[in-house]
Design a protein around this nucleic acid. Structure first.
Lengths: 260, 260
DNA sequence: GCGCAGACCG
DNA sequence: CGGTCTGCGC
């Protein structure tokens, strides 16, 4: 079973490329596709296009910002898109149960700049999310948590750690926030399989960063311990990122294969 | 010698289609190309692309609105782009002398709605322009005046005169304004050759008007009497209008051939 | 319906 | 740098 996480930076702008990629490059080998930054309300999400390709979708989305979806070739057994009073109205989370596994799709806040309002929002969001997890789930359950976490965990996950040490996504408080979340009971599947490998998932649009491989690893596929023995491989697929037309997302998709 | 007038509705948005058309459809048979609605300042106008194709260009343009240019395979002998205090700062006129003929490129005001501020601006603009012509030119000179005049001269020039009788471009005061200008000494070359033919040059983007041929004739090539005996043909080229991608202008180019 | 501009977000 | 939205012009 292959699960993919991709921040598409607008489903509208990426629809054409996404379906081309799914068909031509992936031959529809993705079983569960988790998207972030849809930037549209649910009524514009292309449910029908996915249905035609054999995917059932759920989405938790809003106009202009944020928005996450889960599309699955396997039946979706349960879905949580209402997180009650834990969060404000930003659509950043979506959970589906598929084949008995909880799929948590996450679009963490960006944070803007150190010390600003959005920076503290990000840190608090991580805290709230961890508290919600603690109250509603257990690390003994089979969970795959994927998404854009907007944090590069270690220096190896940044192309120039010294240059970017005060940049958003690399600062100690942010790393601490994500690590606390992981320590609840997750394993970073990519790092588990490739302890030394440098592999980015995001490259700035500015200055053609993709062509110089100046990026960061801020998209992840995490799983709980009950699933780690079934993990077969994790890869970042550069195909949809290394193009000029149609314009790609600034993120590349990350795909994990589990022996399920 | 072939002269073409085309409201491109943004030179930026139309550049690709324009050069494709010039090369593939026209085989560079256009000697003088007069464009309207450039919507960019002169520093963005593609002078170099035209130069590579053998055209020398002059432009009178501004940000966002209006803007006219003349591109010529024949040498441009003189150019007038400063009309002193006759007009405000809207860039709607450009005159070049080519082979001893004065080429006047016009982008007349649209007028918005009857009775509004822009409506009176349009009528006054026509008056001012005629006064300027009277002061600076003579109908005995060889003049070709082309452009988007935003007026359909007669009912035959409108797809549904009854439905559109209160619409901008068809109202008596507007027609009167254009007719006064023509009566100074111009001949409507298309109507001269085809007294009965209905041929539009503009179709609304809304409702796919081009596919139902619901348009108006608002773009013209006029000439003074000294040139009328050299007129060979006038045509409206639908090739660049009847496409879906890249998006066409709402106007089609009109081309006149003179035996010069 | 399709341009552009300016503002905001990332 | 590239997405969206709003406002405006045609």
């Amino acid at each position: 079973m292959k699960i993919c996480s991709w921040n598409v930076n607008s489903i509208r702008a990426r629809k054409e490329l996404l379906f081309k990629w799914l068909e031509e490059k992936r031959k529809y080998d993705i079983d569960i596709l988790c998207l972030q930054e849809l930037k549209v309300e649910e009524d514009i999400f292309p449910f029908n296009d996915f249905k035609e390709k054999g995917y059932e979708c759920v989405a938790n989305a809003q106009k202009r910002y944020n928005g996450v979806s889960i599309c699955s070739k396997l039946p979706i057994e349960e879905t949580i898109k209402d997180f009650g009073s834990f969060f404000d109205n930003q659509k950043r989370l979506l959970i589906s149960k598929i084949k008995g596994i909880y799929i948590i799709n996450v679009y963490a806040p960006h944070g803007d700049l150190r010390g600003g309002e959005k920076y503290y929002y990000k840190l608090e969001w991580y805290e709230k999310f961890l508290n919600w997890l603690k109250e509603n789930f257990s690390p003994d359950l089979p969970i795959i948590m994927v998404g854009d976490f907007n944090v590069a965990l270690e220096d190896i996950d940044v192309y120039d750690p010294e240059l970017l040490k005060d940049s958003i996504g690399t600062m100690p408080e942010e790393r601490e926030a994500l690590k606390k979340l992981i320590n609840w009971g997750f394993i970073d599947t990519f790092r588990y399989l490739y302890p030394e490998k440098q592999q980015f998932t995001w490259w700035d649009y500015i200055g053609g960063a993709i062509w110089k491989n100046e990026g960061m690893r801020i998209d992840y596929i995490f799983c709980t311990k009950p699933l780690i023995e079934k993990l077969k491989d994790v890869e970042v697929d550069l195909w949809p990122r290394r193009r000029r037309k149609p314009t790609p997302s600034d993120h590349a998709p990350i795909i994990a294969e589990f022996d399920i």
